[in-house]
Measured scan of single mutants.
Amino acid sequence: MGTYKLILNGKTLKGETTTEAVDAATAEKVFKQYANDNGVDGEWTYDDATKTFTVTE
């Protein structure tokens, strides 16, 4: 398990959240659902060194 971070750079929603997941693929699924639930759809990037996903609208 590891802690993964999501940085939201949406047009109307900005912020950060974290999740505990077994791997990056699992964290990505959780974060994409979170972003979708909050109406954020954009370009995704992932930094393996910091376990950080970023979505920018």
Rank of each mutant, 00 (worst) to 15 (best):
Q33A: 14
T18E: 09
T17E: 06
E20C: 09
D37Q: 13
N38H: 14
A35Q: 02
V40E: 03
Q33V: 09
T50L: 08
A21S: 06
Q33Y: 05
K51Y: 08
I7K: 06
D23S: 07
T26A: 15
Q33C: 05
N38T: 07
L6P: 00
G42D: 02
V30S: 06
N9T: 08
V30Y: 15
G10S: 09
T3W: 13
G42K: 02
V22F: 13
N9F: 12
N38S: 08
T45H: 11
T50E: 06
L13N: 09
T54C: 06
V55E: 01
V22M: 13
K51E: 03
F31R: 00
N36C: 11
E28C: 14
A49G: 07
E43S: 11
K32G: 03
K5M: 08
A35E: 01
E28H: 13
T54H: 06
V55T: 03
T45K: 10
D37E: 12
D48K: 09
D23T: 05
G2A: 15
W44D: 00
T18C: 08
L6F: 05
E20W: 14
D48Q: 12
T12N: 14
E20S: 12
L8Y: 09
Q33M: 11
Y46G: 00
V22C: 09
T17N: 05
D41G: 09
G15K: 13
M1Y: 13
T3R: 10
A21L: 02
E28M: 15
T50D: 04
K14Q: 12
W44E: 00
E43Q: 13
T18K: 07
T52S: 04
Y4G: 01
A27P: 01
Y4I: 01
K14P: 06
E20P: 06
L8T: 05
Y34F: 11
E28R: 10
L6W: 02
Y4E: 00
T17S: 08
L8S: 03
G2S: 15
I7V: 13
E20A: 09
D41C: 11
G10K: 04
T17M: 15
A24K: 15
D37G: 05
G42I: 02
E20V: 14
W44P: 01
K11C: 11
D47Q: 05
A35N: 02
E20G: 05
V30P: 01
A25C: 09
T18V: 11
M1N: 10
G10V: 11
A25Q: 12
M1T: 11
N38D: 03
A35S: 05
G15P: 04
T17R: 12
D41S: 13
I7Y: 07
W44M: 04
V55K: 01
K11T: 11
